[in-house]
Amino acid sequence: MATLQSFTDWIADYAGVVRDQADYLTDLDRAIGDADHGANMARGMGKVALLTEQEEFTAIDAYLKKVGMSLVSNVGGASGPLYGTFFLRMAGAFTGVEEAGVTEVAAGLRAGVEGILARGKAEVGDKTMYDAWAPALEAFDSAVGSGSDLAAALAAAAEAAAKGRDETEGLVARKGRASYLGERSRGHIDPGATSSTMLLESAARTLA
Protein backbone atom coordinates (compact mmCIF):
# COMPACT_ATOMS: atom_id res chain seq x y z
CA MET A 1 0.00 0.00 0.00
CA ALA A 2 1.29 3.40 -0.96
CA THR A 3 0.87 6.07 1.69
CA LEU A 4 1.51 9.78 1.58
CA GLN A 5 4.99 8.94 2.77
CA SER A 6 5.47 6.63 -0.23
CA PHE A 7 4.52 9.46 -2.57
CA THR A 8 6.86 11.96 -0.97
CA ASP A 9 9.59 9.31 -1.14
CA TRP A 10 8.82 8.85 -4.80
CA ILE A 11 9.15 12.54 -5.55
CA ALA A 12 12.31 12.84 -3.50
CA ASP A 13 13.82 9.85 -5.26
CA TYR A 14 12.91 11.21 -8.65
CA ALA A 15 14.30 14.63 -7.80
CA GLY A 16 17.55 12.94 -6.96
CA VAL A 17 17.59 10.93 -10.16
CA VAL A 18 16.87 13.96 -12.27
CA ARG A 19 19.57 15.94 -10.54
CA ASP A 20 22.08 13.18 -11.12
CA GLN A 21 21.01 12.64 -14.70
CA ALA A 22 20.45 16.28 -15.65
CA ASP A 23 23.46 16.40 -17.93
CA TYR A 24 22.47 13.17 -19.62
CA LEU A 25 18.95 14.45 -20.26
CA THR A 26 20.28 17.73 -21.56
CA ASP A 27 22.65 15.89 -23.87
CA LEU A 28 19.74 13.89 -25.26
CA ASP A 29 17.85 17.12 -25.78
CA ARG A 30 20.83 18.76 -27.40
CA ALA A 31 20.76 16.18 -30.16
CA ILE A 32 17.19 16.84 -31.18
CA GLY A 33 15.87 19.78 -29.21
CA ASP A 34 16.97 22.87 -27.39
CA ALA A 35 19.34 21.37 -24.83
CA ASP A 36 17.39 22.33 -21.77
CA HIS A 37 15.45 19.25 -20.68
CA GLY A 38 17.85 18.18 -17.95
CA ALA A 39 18.27 21.69 -16.60
CA ASN A 40 14.53 22.31 -16.75
CA MET A 41 13.64 19.09 -15.00
CA ALA A 42 16.34 19.52 -12.39
CA ARG A 43 15.15 23.02 -11.66
CA GLY A 44 11.50 22.00 -11.51
CA MET A 45 12.06 18.88 -9.41
CA GLY A 46 14.45 20.78 -7.20
CA LYS A 47 11.62 23.15 -6.35
CA VAL A 48 9.22 20.27 -5.92
CA ALA A 49 11.55 18.46 -3.55
CA LEU A 50 11.45 21.47 -1.24
CA LEU A 51 7.68 21.33 -0.92
CA THR A 52 7.69 19.01 2.07
CA GLU A 53 10.02 21.37 3.90
CA GLN A 54 7.85 24.38 3.23
CA GLU A 55 4.51 22.88 4.04
CA GLU A 56 2.96 20.05 5.97
CA PHE A 57 0.87 17.71 3.83
CA THR A 58 -1.83 15.42 5.15
CA ALA A 59 -3.32 13.99 1.99
CA ILE A 60 -1.93 12.36 -1.14
CA ASP A 61 -4.10 14.36 -3.50
CA ALA A 62 -3.21 17.71 -2.00
CA TYR A 63 0.46 16.85 -2.16
CA LEU A 64 0.38 15.69 -5.76
CA LYS A 65 -1.60 18.77 -6.75
CA LYS A 66 1.09 20.94 -5.30
CA VAL A 67 3.74 18.90 -7.10
CA GLY A 68 1.89 19.46 -10.37
CA MET A 69 1.49 23.20 -9.91
CA SER A 70 5.08 23.56 -8.89
CA LEU A 71 6.23 21.77 -12.04
CA VAL A 72 3.97 23.92 -14.19
CA SER A 73 5.58 27.05 -12.87
CA ASN A 74 9.17 25.96 -12.58
CA VAL A 75 10.12 23.62 -15.39
CA GLY A 76 9.77 26.11 -18.20
CA GLY A 77 9.75 23.89 -21.23
CA ALA A 78 6.97 21.72 -22.60
CA SER A 79 7.68 19.22 -19.83
CA GLY A 80 6.28 21.72 -17.35
CA PRO A 81 2.69 21.61 -18.50
CA LEU A 82 3.01 17.93 -19.41
CA TYR A 83 4.37 16.65 -16.08
CA GLY A 84 2.30 19.27 -14.30
CA THR A 85 -0.83 17.95 -15.91
CA PHE A 86 0.22 14.41 -15.10
CA PHE A 87 0.44 15.12 -11.40
CA LEU A 88 -2.62 17.34 -11.28
CA ARG A 89 -4.78 14.71 -12.94
CA MET A 90 -3.24 11.99 -10.84
CA ALA A 91 -4.05 14.00 -7.77
CA GLY A 92 -7.69 14.01 -8.81
CA ALA A 93 -7.74 10.23 -8.77
CA PHE A 94 -6.53 10.11 -5.17
CA THR A 95 -9.21 12.30 -3.66
CA GLY A 96 -10.07 10.78 -0.29
CA VAL A 97 -7.52 8.01 -0.71
CA GLU A 98 -5.20 7.57 2.24
CA GLU A 99 -3.60 4.31 1.26
CA ALA A 100 -3.32 3.59 -2.44
CA GLY A 101 -3.37 -0.02 -3.50
CA VAL A 102 -2.79 -1.37 -6.94
CA THR A 103 -6.27 -0.35 -8.09
CA GLU A 104 -5.91 3.24 -6.93
CA VAL A 105 -2.46 3.58 -8.43
CA ALA A 106 -3.77 2.16 -11.70
CA ALA A 107 -6.51 4.78 -11.73
CA GLY A 108 -4.03 7.50 -10.83
CA LEU A 109 -1.55 6.56 -13.55
CA ARG A 110 -4.32 6.31 -16.08
CA ALA A 111 -5.72 9.73 -15.21
CA GLY A 112 -2.25 11.20 -15.37
CA VAL A 113 -1.42 9.69 -18.74
CA GLU A 114 -4.75 10.81 -20.11
CA GLY A 115 -3.76 14.26 -19.00
CA ILE A 116 -0.48 14.01 -20.88
CA LEU A 117 -2.36 12.83 -23.91
CA ALA A 118 -4.89 15.65 -23.74
CA ARG A 119 -2.20 18.23 -23.22
CA GLY A 120 0.33 17.08 -25.77
CA LYS A 121 -2.06 15.61 -28.37
CA ALA A 122 0.66 13.10 -29.15
CA GLU A 123 0.19 9.65 -30.56
CA VAL A 124 2.25 6.52 -30.21
CA GLY A 125 5.14 6.78 -32.60
CA ASP A 126 5.43 10.58 -32.48
CA LYS A 127 8.68 10.22 -30.54
CA THR A 128 7.46 11.83 -27.35
CA MET A 129 7.15 10.88 -23.70
CA TYR A 130 3.86 9.23 -24.61
CA ASP A 131 5.86 6.51 -26.31
CA ALA A 132 7.05 5.49 -22.85
CA TRP A 133 3.76 6.10 -21.06
CA ALA A 134 1.47 4.22 -23.41
CA PRO A 135 3.21 0.83 -23.14
CA ALA A 136 3.84 1.41 -19.46
CA LEU A 137 0.18 1.87 -18.77
CA GLU A 138 -0.69 -1.16 -20.80
CA ALA A 139 1.90 -3.27 -18.99
CA PHE A 140 0.67 -2.03 -15.63
CA ASP A 141 -2.92 -2.90 -16.44
CA SER A 142 -2.06 -6.28 -17.80
CA ALA A 143 0.06 -7.08 -14.74
CA VAL A 144 -2.86 -6.09 -12.54
CA GLY A 145 -5.13 -8.20 -14.68
CA SER A 146 -2.99 -11.24 -14.11
CA GLY A 147 -3.00 -10.70 -10.36
CA SER A 148 0.29 -8.91 -9.75
CA ASP A 149 0.75 -6.75 -6.71
CA LEU A 150 1.64 -3.09 -6.83
CA ALA A 151 5.37 -3.68 -6.79
CA ALA A 152 5.28 -6.16 -9.64
CA ALA A 153 2.91 -4.00 -11.67
CA LEU A 154 5.09 -0.94 -11.27
CA ALA A 155 8.15 -2.96 -12.19
CA ALA A 156 6.42 -4.19 -15.30
CA ALA A 157 5.36 -0.65 -16.17
CA ALA A 158 8.89 0.66 -15.74
CA GLU A 159 10.26 -2.11 -17.87
CA ALA A 160 7.72 -1.43 -20.63
CA ALA A 161 8.46 2.29 -20.44
CA ALA A 162 12.16 1.59 -20.87
CA LYS A 163 11.41 -0.50 -23.92
CA GLY A 164 9.20 2.25 -25.34
CA ARG A 165 11.90 4.79 -24.59
CA ASP A 166 14.48 2.71 -26.44
CA GLU A 167 12.19 2.38 -29.41
CA THR A 168 11.95 6.14 -29.80
CA GLU A 169 15.48 5.97 -31.14
CA GLY A 170 14.22 4.63 -34.46
CA LEU A 171 11.39 7.14 -34.77
CA VAL A 172 11.10 10.43 -36.59
CA ALA A 173 9.72 13.13 -34.32
CA ARG A 174 6.30 14.45 -35.20
CA LYS A 175 5.70 16.61 -32.15
CA GLY A 176 7.62 19.24 -30.29
CA ARG A 177 10.84 20.98 -31.13
CA ALA A 178 12.41 17.79 -32.49
CA SER A 179 9.83 17.64 -35.25
CA TYR A 180 11.59 20.57 -36.90
CA LEU A 181 14.45 18.20 -37.59
CA GLY A 182 12.36 15.72 -39.53
CA GLU A 183 14.43 12.71 -40.58
CA ARG A 184 17.42 13.97 -38.66
CA SER A 185 15.60 13.29 -35.42
CA ARG A 186 15.96 9.58 -36.08
CA GLY A 187 18.75 7.81 -34.23
CA HIS A 188 18.28 9.65 -30.96
CA ILE A 189 16.37 8.60 -27.87
CA ASP A 190 13.63 11.02 -26.90
CA PRO A 191 14.52 12.98 -23.74
CA GLY A 192 10.90 13.16 -22.55
CA ALA A 193 10.47 9.41 -22.87
CA THR A 194 13.71 9.06 -20.92
CA SER A 195 12.69 11.28 -18.01
CA SER A 196 9.27 9.60 -17.97
CA THR A 197 10.89 6.20 -17.69
CA MET A 198 12.98 7.51 -14.82
CA LEU A 199 9.82 8.65 -13.07
CA LEU A 200 8.33 5.17 -13.36
CA GLU A 201 11.55 3.53 -12.25
CA SER A 202 11.49 5.77 -9.19
CA ALA A 203 7.90 4.75 -8.56
CA ALA A 204 8.85 1.08 -8.75
CA ARG A 205 11.54 1.68 -6.11
CA THR A 206 9.43 3.75 -3.72
CA LEU A 207 5.70 3.42 -4.11
CA ALA A 208 5.16 -0.21 -3.25
Binding site: M69, S73, G76
Partner: peptide, 13 residues
Protein backbone atom coordinates in the same frame (compact mmCIF):
# COMPACT_ATOMS: atom_id res chain seq x y z
CA UNK B 1 10.30 33.34 -19.22
CA UNK B 2 10.60 31.87 -15.77
CA UNK B 3 12.50 34.98 -14.78
CA UNK B 4 14.41 37.69 -16.61
CA UNK B 5 17.11 35.30 -17.68
CA UNK B 6 15.54 31.86 -17.75
CA UNK B 7 13.72 30.77 -20.88
CA UNK B 8 10.49 28.98 -20.25
CA UNK B 9 6.76 29.35 -19.89
CA UNK B 10 4.59 29.00 -16.83
CA UNK B 11 0.94 28.12 -17.13
CA UNK B 12 0.13 29.71 -13.79
CA UNK B 13 1.75 32.95 -14.86
Amino acid sequence: GLDDQTFGTDAAA
